[in-house]
Amino acid sequence: MASQGTKRSYEQMETDGERQNATEIRASVGKMIDGIGRFYIQMCTELKLSDYEGRLIQNSLTIERMVLSAFDERRNKYLEEHPSAGKDPKKTGGPIYKRVDRKWMRELVLYDKEEIRRIWRQANNGDDATAGLTHMMIWHSNLNDTTYQRTRALVRTGMDPRMCSLMQGSTLPRRSGAAGAAVKGVGTMVMELIRMIKRGINDRNFWRGENGRKTRSAYERMCNILKGKFQTAAQRAMMDQVRESRNPGNAEIEDLIFLARSALILRGSVAHKSCLPACVYGPAVASGYDFEKEGYSLVGIDPFKLLQNSQVYSLIRPNENPAHKSQLVWMACNSAAFEDLRVLSFIRGTKVSPRGKLSTRGVQIASNENMDAMESSTLELRSRYWAIRTRSGGNTNQQRASAGQISVQPAFSVQRNLPFDKPTIMAAFTGNTEGRTSDMRAEIIRMMEGAKPEEMSFQGRGVFELSDERAANPIVPSFDMSNEGSYFFGDNAEEYDN
């Protein structure tokens, strides 16, 4: 993207840094990872977990959730003011799984939030270390993106479920800051804005008074975040219109849905970061690795190297396929839920299948599930090659597409044709070009129609051997075009429920 120079890199967003050079960025990201790792080690000690239990991804998720809940100030305040039966607002906890007599047992633990905050700050040299908290939120978000298709949420806001490739980060909490905003897809931002506008339509006082002023500035800020994701002048001009509207209503909703559809071809720039579970960072720190000293990046080879040398386990339900569970977590670790499966298959070195073909449910185990038949197995999170994460949407291309997802959002900077089903997408653009945004709409449609099938995206960008740390010898991959490109292809993934 041309304006790259004016933006802070995501590592800076990730670490609240002012302008830093590459070495400083690597050190501050490393410091953040160190903090998460030290916190995780301490929690495993508190909970008396064995090494194996500490490497269980379900335990990692519970521990991450506990610290996120302990620092969720708004919710904590709300819980104190609106006490609900049987919930102690000062405590947080969740299921911890232990191996007892050759069987997995679930144990519900409860801790004072104050105590968890103390352990977290102690692991982070006394700081609140917001960057580390956001990092864990993005890992949870990436896992949700890989596990669930947001059909219901899309339909509720009037969008087409086939636009799911635009929904990265749709389950990120509001408090995820600049680093969170960077990884949100165009569809996620559109959905947040539509929800806001709908509230304004239904509630006369939404934009009024002292609160209304705050609401208005939040609305304009979200519009600017979305505008910054678009790469064409016409899309940005249309966002200006939406932002400046005196009284946002149905016309703005129409414009936003139009823009979301246009992003299936004229893709937005959305950041991709490899955020790993805390149970990967903990053992690495415990083994003596100093992330701050060595430096770390979320968008280069580092996460690949770390996963190459990590042992992570997962509980497996009786009829689940461990290899499929591994694929789910591998995609989440690489922030690749909406990437082209052919690119992923090449990088991973084994075939990556669409969601609907995987015999696996989510990673988390519900409290009512029976533990008797639970097994555990090693997650295979290694890769054959590594590639640089991208934040450009890439230019655009036609490809055989599917009944489910009709476009992709690249996660890796790797040369390819970008699949999208042009006739299906263009069919949504018939007729409606009147109104105050008509010239911009016409211009956007013209650009979409001009998108050429034979153009290559990320020209000359390749993948790298894991021994090639400096990215000196790019390998331009070859793809098996007979395979499906979309992950949520004609899909039956479970729906995400809060």
Rank of each mutant, 00 (worst) to 15 (best):
residue 482 S to H: 01
residue 60 S to T: 01
residue 88 D to F: 13
residue 424 T to H: 00
residue 207 W to C: 06
residue 381 L to V: 01
residue 131 A to K: 15
residue 83 P to A: 02
residue 273 K to M: 09
residue 388 I to G: 13
residue 452 K to V: 01
residue 353 S to D: 09
residue 2 A to C: 10
residue 74 R to C: 08
residue 7 K to Y: 11
residue 49 L to C: 02
residue 266 L to C: 07
residue 261 R to N: 12
residue 320 E to Y: 10
residue 317 R to I: 03
residue 490 G to F: 11
residue 132 G to Q: 03
residue 288 G to L: 10
residue 155 V to N: 15
residue 200 G to D: 03
residue 441 R to Q: 11
residue 469 E to Y: 02
residue 15 T to I: 14
residue 323 A to T: 13
residue 487 Y to K: 01
residue 437 T to H: 03
residue 483 N to S: 03
residue 184 K to N: 14
residue 315 L to V: 14
residue 271 A to K: 13
residue 483 N to C: 05
residue 375 E to W: 07
residue 247 N to E: 09
residue 87 K to H: 12
residue 211 N to W: 06
residue 299 V to T: 03
residue 407 S to F: 10
residue 261 R to P: 08
residue 26 R to W: 08
residue 40 Y to Q: 10
residue 456 M to V: 14
residue 116 I to V: 15
residue 326 S to W: 08
residue 33 I to H: 10
residue 445 I to Y: 07
residue 145 D to W: 10
residue 241 Q to E: 14
residue 248 P to C: 01
residue 53 E to C: 03
residue 147 T to Y: 10
residue 225 I to N: 13
residue 334 N to M: 00
residue 84 S to V: 15
residue 333 C to G: 05
residue 239 M to L: 01
residue 342 R to M: 14
residue 403 A to M: 15
residue 159 M to D: 13
residue 47 L to E: 07
residue 395 N to E: 07
residue 220 E to D: 04
residue 207 W to T: 07
residue 208 R to T: 03
residue 70 A to V: 13
residue 284 A to Y: 13
residue 14 E to T: 05
residue 274 S to N: 06
residue 310 S to M: 04
residue 202 N to D: 15
residue 142 N to H: 14
residue 59 N to G: 12
residue 179 A to T: 14
residue 427 A to W: 04
residue 51 D to A: 00
residue 40 Y to S: 03
residue 362 G to C: 11
residue 366 A to G: 00
residue 438 S to K: 09
residue 421 D to A: 02
residue 129 A to W: 09
residue 409 Q to D: 09
residue 346 F to Y: 04
residue 82 H to C: 00
residue 105 M to D: 02
residue 177 G to Q: 09
residue 82 H to Y: 06
residue 121 R to N: 03
residue 162 R to K: 04
residue 420 F to L: 02
residue 114 E to Q: 00
residue 158 G to P: 02
residue 128 D to K: 08
residue 226 L to A: 04
residue 376 S to C: 15
residue 368 N to K: 01
residue 382 R to D: 15
residue 328 L to M: 02
residue 185 G to T: 03
residue 438 S to E: 09
residue 126 G to M: 09
